[in-house]
Design a protein around this nucleic acid. Sequence first.
DNA 1: TCCAATCGCGTACGTTGTACTCGAAATGAC
DNA 2: GTCATTTCGAGTACAACGTACGCGATTGGA
Lengths: 252, 252
Amino acid sequence: MSAAEMSAAEAQVSIWMRPENVERSGPGRRPGYSRAQITQAAVDVADREGLDAATMRRVAQELGTGAMSLYRYVPKRDDLIDLMLDAVVGEIELPERPSGDWRADLSLVAHQTRAVGLRHPWQATLTRRPTLGPNSLRVYDFALSALDGFGLHIDEMTSLCGMVGDYVASAVRDEIGWLDHARHTGMNRKQWMAQYVGPYVRHVVESEQYPLFNRTIREGRLSHLSPDARFQYGLNHVLNGIAAALPDTTTG
Amino acid sequence: MSAAEMSAAEAQVSIWMRPENVERSGPGRRPGYSRAQITQAAVDVADREGLDAATMRRVAQELGTGAMSLYRYVPKRDDLIDLMLDAVVGEIELPERPSGDWRADLSLVAHQTRAVGLRHPWQATLTRRPTLGPNSLRVYDFALSALDGFGLHIDEMTSLCGMVGDYVASAVRDEIGWLDHARHTGMNRKQWMAQYVGPYVRHVVESEQYPLFNRTIREGRLSHLSPDARFQYGLNHVLNGIAAALPDTTTG
DNA sequence: TCCAATCGCGTACGTTGTACTCGAAATGAC
DNA sequence: GTCATTTCGAGTACAACGTACGCGATTGGA
């Protein structure tokens, strides 16, 4: 099998099954970079300038090399993004084992996940199959184990944890949603509200066609809360919903 | 203000505030297409070949014209995608008013939204600020009004409806997640499972590092259910969670 | 009939991911 | 030390993208 055929075959395989050639012995030049190094450079660029700016050329430039050099370490840009995702999930700090207080544990996962999302705004704009990298698996396992011991079926635990995950993902998206738009249009949030969506919302409200939407605008206090408080407000509802599915712990 | 300056200024405005020039009177050639027509062509292409295939060139080709002709009707491709999103949301069929059975009403919205997601798989892969087009507003208002009359604050209704929306979006993404990947790699689901993720999952399971993940693989029945049943299973949990937040209706 | 406005759309530019290619560098065997 | 072997770094090239610009064709009103 030639090197070209080898590479073509391996390109079909998950990046997590494709360890980079580290500590190789034998003839040939030694690699000057590493996957971790390239991933970090890509994360840095994406943090500063957005995911769209983290092109192969730009990431290579960050490292002081040429675009094609990166392909010695990463098969495709998509795979690099997988690596980036798992890398930032690695920033989530969790204890080895759940505390026994499921509500505190899931709350911790939720807040940590949100913090990562805000630190790396490009991450929330991605929709892809959940990354199965080592860091993601660790967080996933911790969240599930917080609901262990209540006699629930594993499928039920998955569903309930999923509610938290769905909420956090969507909340973070909302929080930073305007960021990417701002980068593209050059407008900050105030300008965007005032120029782009403000007049339209006013127009919709005045049309009186959507009574509940109007109540949201007129009576809703949610959008006036601090981002932290807003996040906590919604999270409480989700956790309350989970509590309802557990065998009664406090009452009874 | 010149025409160029005009167009530059208008480009900053929401597409919903930019009605196309219809039924114009005065000199000048009459338009040969319409926003609705272009939107429909784009949706058709995206349905058949994926959103990435719905380029300006390809959509124009679908209509038998040139790429630049579209820009007489749509300012940017991003705006066209907004139009596409609201267009498919328009396929959601809902009664004029909620039935009074909140669970049935939210269930209806959830199932209809899922159906649209499966019919137009590209839609679920998008993450953007919620479209404020007329069809999206109608669905949003219906969902909120299903929870009206329980004495809840509008913010609470928003949070609870959000849980349903988050669940549906994430469930649909899971259901069709492999589709886009399949289109890119040319693998169908079986091949993807067998070649791409299967060996890696086996490797992870055998490592015994993630006990709850292992239980999911070994004891989980969720992934063996039909997609319909799986969706219903998760939806029931979400609706149960909402029931817990309502003043007691059945009990008491 | 003629003017001014509008449409259809060809051409062109800057950017993207990445296939191909080849010289440079590093090593083990002798 | 010398050389054959292997791998790395990176320049060049290509196809495809969104879209700015500009021009000929078309149209209604004066």
